[in-house]
Design a binder for these strands. Structure first.
Length: 427
RNA sequence: GGUGGAGUCGCCUAGUGGCCGAGGGCGCGCGCCUCGAAAGCGCGUGAGGGGGCAACCCCUCCGUGGGUUCAAAUCCCACCUCCACCGCCA
């Protein structure tokens, strides 16, 4: 959520910034709603002040035995007026709130204008492996190596699900274990959050109302509260400090968590993305930081570096892209994607998205901190980065590391867990 | 799932319609005292919003949302959360 005071004081600046990621921006309705709200607030408050006086008077008169019937009648009339005025104010506040909730974050100056085509590759690591004449894609490799059972996965969960089996499950789990250990050793706080979150958490994280269709909702029988399956651990970790004021000295808070991520992926690219590149459920380790604004820049660099380091330790060829304003998600100011090479698709696929939200998420979720004891509060800055999405790494690993005989070299950090250096086809 | 109890200013707590627009204690901050400290004494101690150049004024918040009333922390309704016991269960 953007700061209404900023919009009010410098609408041109806000408008220009937003045009980077929106076709048209009309702040008129926002400014009108704001003006109306402030006018009504003034009226309601002075009326309420008046009512307090009257009620006090009546109390005194009654105590001294005077008849107060007339005064009560007048006060009741004022009360009715206040009820009406309050209704108008509530309406105006809702209008303003709804309008504000719809505005995306202001992109950073460094974020290129435009969509996907304007993304800038800022780093490339490693090289495309030479896979000979007939490289196999990960579906073929995972099947022949017995890592993933696609058919039975669909039998269990329906279209968009797969089943890790044997060494495949071990490989996936070894990746998660490897990442968790890395973050844990680096001093990040390990969190294993609930996977079902309340609707409030969804609104705070910006999941709702706009992207409500992207997640799975769990409806309680009747009258109960609805909840939803988290689409990423980011949603959960952001909400850890929702509606809190962090005492001086708390920041930075660096956390990470592992959860499966559940996404409907309705009407998505599924058909182009065979195998396990995109599904309704995938595994991801997520890093998250709550920091003071002046530390945000360093924090983002740290997160990008950590994500890149993990891919490098696995020995996979990847690139890092600075996302254009329209390709980054709406609540972020600046986003870098770490994209791993998928040979069979001939493209780089995102395995981490490292983003700086500024105070946009914090404002929405009500997360403040106290810079110094006794000083006023301020909104924290939030950042997040995958570290990493494992379900896309497994395809990258088997494809990039495949050998002419159909075997696959296991990345060094995973060998102890998996128990072998090479995965060989089953006969 | 059932029954009972509870949610007040960082923490503990007082408070059953106007004297609570919230009292006390602890903690914390400042000051006095002291060579210094402790003790003691005094003062202060939340969040959000509106108006004003400013001094300053005003409004909201006693788990959340409704309701009754001239007036609600206090009465009524619903919900959320916590605690205790019972039942069930990984």
């Amino acid at each position: 959520m953007l700061d209404i005071e900023l919009i009010r004081s410098d609408p041109d600046f806000v408008r220009t910034a937003l045009l980077k990621r929106m076709d048209e921006v009309d702040l008129g309705p926002v400014l009108e709603a704001d003006a109306l709200r402030r006018k009504l607030v003034g009226e309601v408050e002075s009326a309420r002040s008046e009512r307090k006086q009257q009620a006090k008077e009546i109390g005194k008169l009654k105590a001294s035995g005077v008849d107060t019937a007339d005064a009560q009648k007048r006060a009741a009339a004022l009360g009715d007026q206040i009820t009406e005025m309050q209704a108008a104010l509530t309406e105006a506040e809702k209008t303003l709130h709804d309008l504000l909730m719809e505005l995306p974050n202001l992109p950073d100056e460094r974020s290129p204008a435009g969509g996907k085509e304007a993304n800038q590759v800022i780093r490339t690591w490693g090289e495309k492996p030479d896979l000979g004449d007939k490289p196999l894609d990960h579906v073929e490799l995972c099947t022949s190596l017995g890592l993933i059972d696609y058919a039975r996965g669909v039998k269990l969960g329906g279209n968009g699900y797969w089943l890790y089996t044997g060494q495949g499950a071990a490989l996936e789990w070894a990746l998660l274990d490897f990442f968790n250990r890395e973050h844990y050793a680096a001093g990040y706080q390990f969190m294993l959050p609930p996977h079902l979150l309340t609707e409030e958490a969804g609104y705070a994280a910006g999941q709702f109302p706009k992207f409500a269709d992207d997640v799975y909702h769990i409806a309680e029988e009747q009258g109960g509260r609805n909840s939803f399956l988290l689409p990423t651990a980011e949603t959960a970790i952001l909400n850890v400090y929702r509606d809190e004021i962090l005492p001086a000295g708390t920041l930075p808070v660096k956390a990470f968590g592992y959860t499966p991520c559940y996404r409907r992926e309705a009407g998505s690219y599924r058909s182009e993305e065979r195998g396990s590149v995109r599904g309704h459920q995938f595994n991801k380790v997520e890093m998250f930081q709550f920091v003071a604004p002046e530390d945000a820049e360093d924090a983002l660099n740290e997160l990008v570096a950590r994500s890149q380091m993990l891919v490098e330790k696995l020995g996979l060829h990847y690139q890092t892209s600075l996302l254009a304003a329209r390709d980054a998600s709406a609540s972020m100011k600046l986003t870098y994607d770490i994209e791993v090479w998928i040979p069979s698709m001939g493209v780089y696929k995102e395995v981490s998205s490292a983003s700086w939200a500024g105070d946009y998420q914090a404002r929405r979720a009500g997360i403040r901190y106290r810079p110094e004891q006794g000083k006023p509060t301020a909104y924290v800055h939030t950042l997040n980065a995958s570290g990493l999405a494992t379900s896309r790494l497994l395809p990258a690993i088997v494809e990039q590391n495949q050998q002419p005989d159909g075997s696959v070299i296991v990345p060094e950090p995973l060998r102890a867990w998996v128990g072998t250096d090479v995965l060989r086809p089953r006969r």
